[in-house]
Amino acid sequence: MFEILGIPSSALFGQLLIGLINGSFYALLSLGLAVIFGMLNIINFSHGAQYMLGAFAAYLLLQYSGLGYWPALVIAPLLVGATGVIVERLFLQWLYKLDHLYGLLLTFGLALIIEGVARNYFGSAGLPYIVPESLQGGRNLGFMFLPNYRAWVIVASLTICISTWFVIERTRLGAYLRAATENPTLVRAFGINVPRMITLTYGFGVALAAFAGVMAAPIYNVSPQMGSELIIVVFAVVVIGGMGSILGAIVTGFGLGVIEGMTKVFFPEASNTVIFVIMAIVLLVRPAGLFGRRG
């Protein structure tokens, strides 16, 4: 055991790990928000509820169909993503030409309904979800103990984030998405079915939230309010990174998770507020966010 700046290394690395875990969820959720905002111009306030739905879907799949963690990791995002497609077709598609406020209010209302229904059926106490057998245990790295499941969460989140970034920034499909963000009318006049692309983008963003929810289930328990607790921080992350910036969402998500973890070590009193302090400073100095484009 050694010390860094008077802090035992195990405590430091332990908090670093927690920071990276939280950062994994911040990054996944703010990535989904960024993708949705970029394409739909909608601030998706039901993102936290959709994350919670992902966790509940995993829980219910296990309870009623005996489907464990790995199938749930695929099925839950597909199911919740499909509800996103329905929401987009039924409600959101009518709001694109209106002020952001309408989309925000609609999705916020939706979040309240989803949470209320979940609380009605499951109560507000958390339901346990066990770590899948293949990821139980952990390994001693010498300077700290690393639970396998947590290592998996970080790797999986990074993989999904980088793949999403790659698809959007480096592929033909991504070029369609970026072009349609700029000028949907012209992209459509080239022969691309933009409305369908928008629907699927929302479905994908919602599926990302559900994926994060499934991954969170073994760590944070499954509860109706798990999303609303997290989403406030995630919105701060999005504001800091720059609304609609893919890379900004990923880097800021992980970065702020780590900063939050480190604050817990060096100045624990500020650990719950540090992200919001950073948000206030960023808003003053760079209102478009660290990675945001102006205008």
Binding site: R188, A189, F190, G191
Partner: peptide
């Protein structure tokens, strides 16, 4: 027709 079909 919508414009994507006109292009097609």
């Amino acid at each position: 027709r919508p414009s994507d079909q006109i292009a097609r």
